[in-house]
Simulated assay, not measured.
Amino acid sequence: MARSSAGPAVAGLTAGALAIVGFLAFQASATAPDHPTQARGDSHSSAPGNGGKKKSPSSTKVPADSGTGRRVVYQLESRRVWLVGADERTIRTYPVAPSSVDPDPGAYAVTSRNMSLVGSDGVQVEHVIVFHQEDGIVFGFSAALDGSLPNPKARKKTGAVRQTRPDGKALWDFALIDTKVVVVR
């Protein structure tokens, strides 16, 4: 029986492949209304089989306790973000993947933005929107260039909230410095 000296390399490739498969599964779990019509800024979609009528799924309704006005809403329980316009209409909503630490519920504001950097978990990320920092933990939204997700069970405490690259770009365009970010349970 021949032995391969590529053991660690294969293990690294396998871990990378699992990360990609996990991210693709995360993307596939997103409900269809979140994506097809967003290029037009319409959060509602025509559901198949409903005669083409517009439908707003209750699962994507902005949480009632999220305040008013133009804001980013991050609901911890559903792991979902809403971009809400000044007219209270949802511009976009999408699922996210949180890291090992959640921010406390409350109202915050975007404090910094960075087009690209290495995240606290060592992954290259883009469209970084920071909205809170507490006890050395930075809380913000970002998209990993390699599509990886944060490890919610990591020993290192990080406050990264990962999103897909298209969702990250939409948030980047929406959330300028001082934009309100409301975190709800």
Rank of each mutant, 00 (worst) to 15 (best):
A160K: 12
F174H: 00
G85S: 13
G12N: 14
R89T: 14
A2F: 12
V161Q: 00
A19G: 07
K54Y: 02
S59H: 07
Y108F: 15
V161L: 01
T68M: 02
V125A: 11
V10A: 14
G140R: 01
G136I: 01
P105W: 13
S142W: 07
K53T: 10
V96L: 03
A25P: 00
V183T: 08
P8I: 03
H132N: 09
S45E: 12
L24Q: 13
S120Y: 02
S99M: 08
A25W: 06
I91L: 04
S56A: 15
G119H: 05
V72C: 10
L176M: 12
L83A: 09
K157D: 14
G22Q: 01
G69C: 09
H44F: 02
K54D: 05
P105D: 12
Y74S: 06
L117N: 10
A2Q: 14
P150K: 06
P166H: 05
I129V: 15
A28V: 02
D135R: 09
V181C: 07
D121T: 10
F131T: 04
T164V: 03
R79Q: 05
S99F: 13
Q124A: 14
N50S: 06
Y108K: 12
P152N: 06
R71Q: 11
V123K: 12
G140Q: 02
D87A: 10
V182W: 12
A28R: 03
L145M: 09
L117A: 14
A39R: 08
P95H: 09
S100Y: 03
V161E: 00
D65V: 13
K55A: 12
L171K: 04
F131Y: 15
G159H: 06
G136W: 03
G136R: 01
A109H: 01
P150I: 07
H127T: 07
A64E: 10
A25C: 04
Q124C: 02
D42S: 03
L145N: 08
S120W: 06
K54A: 09
A6R: 13
L18P: 00
A30W: 11
A15N: 15
S5L: 11
R80W: 05
V81T: 04
A109K: 01
D42C: 03
F23Y: 14
R92L: 12
V101S: 06
V72E: 04
P57D: 11
K55I: 11
R89I: 08
A32N: 03
V110M: 07
R92C: 05
A32S: 04
D34H: 05
Q163Y: 00
D102T: 06
A2P: 14
S120V: 09
P166A: 03
R40Y: 11
S59N: 13
D167G: 06
S56V: 14
S59M: 09
G147K: 14
K53H: 12
G7I: 15
T68R: 06
L76I: 15
K53R: 15
W172F: 10
D65H: 08
V138R: 15
P8S: 09
D87L: 08
A144P: 00
R162W: 06
Q163E: 14
L24R: 11
P33C: 15
V81W: 01
V110A: 09
V183Y: 04
V118Y: 01
I137P: 00
